[in-house]
Design a binder for these strands. Structure first.
Lengths: 230, 230
DNA sequence: CCCTCAACTGATGTATACAACATTAGGCGA
DNA sequence: TCGCCTAATGTTGTATACATCAGTTGAGGG
């Protein structure tokens, strides 16, 4: 006994999924860069370059890119390359119509009523939206919207619904940023509207009225898409 | 000119996606075998064995298995193997609840009104259900249900909704077959009910009443899950 | 007889060389 | 000068050897 082996003593949850966790991080990282337009539509994502950047081989990269292709964020063509997909209006319109319906289901199917911790988290999000008024930033706005979405996702315990809502969100996350950088919508106005929306949601959450939360979000999603000129 | 090269003359759509098409077929094939219980829950799917069986290497097999894992049909563990997932009741319950809602959306979001060709296809499905009464077969029943689902999927043009509905369907396609092979539900009774359901749907389709189609299907899905004793 | 441990086996995960493919630049001839 | 053909280049897709990991089995010692 008393060996000097490097293994953990016992049941320490020694992360038996190192590889998988790494793949998950890479996936979320590339997805974030695409949604933040660091990788703009049409950009070629070279497997070799990504592998070199991350210090690994092409094999795990290819797995991540295949998943991103399944999610509709990139498209690979043999002999040509892997390119970030363009945002097609009619396609985005379909996704938005579906998201409007799914957001209602998120407060109907296996709803999780918000506790004090949740309300605390949401108030922090609202504070960030108010802070954005003083220091407007399209990028910070997008990050706030992403965090808000992920937070509100905890209101449902329906696993497949969570998965699908998340996929659809990241499918459309780019277009708002694309619009505001093209000056087709006004950043300050969007921030003001967003802060008010979070205030609305906070009121409904404090009342524990999840049905109201769903319908308020539905309206926000609908108007957000309507404000875009595509 | 008049070269004897093997290339097609021009714009003949020379299938530039041979590899992709093959992967698609393999994916649908393995998925079918899992849903038909040819690969029962818990069975180990060896990458090496599958590769040898198909006469290719592990690489494209791994891509297919990764997608199947993302769809929740298999699960891979490093050093152990790739196993067909079990059907968990609470999980299936969540999927069924979501499917009940999505089936309504399928006739509301971007509905496609059935034409004569569609009605013809659906009448053929109904004929198959009547034929099953004379020659009951759980496997043929499952195949009919699968074809019916895919046919009715054409009633919506919303691409992301189609994708998600399909994923959820194949997620739950196994449990009926599992129940009927375990004699926990009566095959003849199920066939009778199914034939009547198709008749109901045919009536609504002939009237062009898509709203009725959605609600009829919702009821059928709900009752189908209720009849199961899990 | 039982417990321990170490080697063995077979599985998935990774790295790398090669094949298939599409694009592009440049040379060659009409 | 124009057009076509060819070679070169860079990409994704595939095959394969190797690394890593988990379960198993069996020998050895108490």
């Amino acid at each position: 006994m008393a060996d000097t082996t490097e293994t953990e003593p016992m049941d320490m949850m020694p992360e038996p999924l190192r590889a998988r966790e790494r793949a998950e991080r890479i996936h979320a990282d590339i997805r974030s860069r695409i949604c933040m337009l660091d990788y703009p539509p049409g950009m070629k994502l070279s497997e070799t370059a990504l592998a070199a950047e991350l210090g690994i081989s092409r094999t795990p990269i290819r797995r991540v890119l295949a998943r991103l292709e399944d999610e509709g964020l990139v498209t690979s063509v043999h002999g040509v390359g892997t390119m970030v997909t363009n945002v097609d209006y009619s396609e985005m319109s379909q996704v938005y119509r579906l998201r409007k319906e799914l957001v209602l289901l998120q407060t109907v199917l296996d709803p999780v009523h918000p506790d004090a911790t949740f309300l605390q988290r949401f108030r922090a999000l609202y504070a960030r939206s108010e802070a954005l008024k003083a220091a407007p930033s399209a990028r910070d706005f997008s990050l706030l919207d992403q965090d808000t979405f992920l937070t509100l996702l905890d209101l449902t315990a329906n696993a497949p619904l969570r998965t699908m809502a998340e996929r659809l969100y990241f499918r459309t996350a780019r277009i708002w940023l694309q619009q505001v950088t093209g000056s087709q919508i006004d950043l300050m106005q969007e921030i003001d509207i967003y802060a008010r929306e979070l205030q609305d949601l906070l009121g409904a959450l404090e009342l524990g009225d999840l049905d109201a939360v769903g319908h308020i979000r539905r309206g926000h999603i609908s108007m957000s898409f309507a404000r875009m000129r595509v």
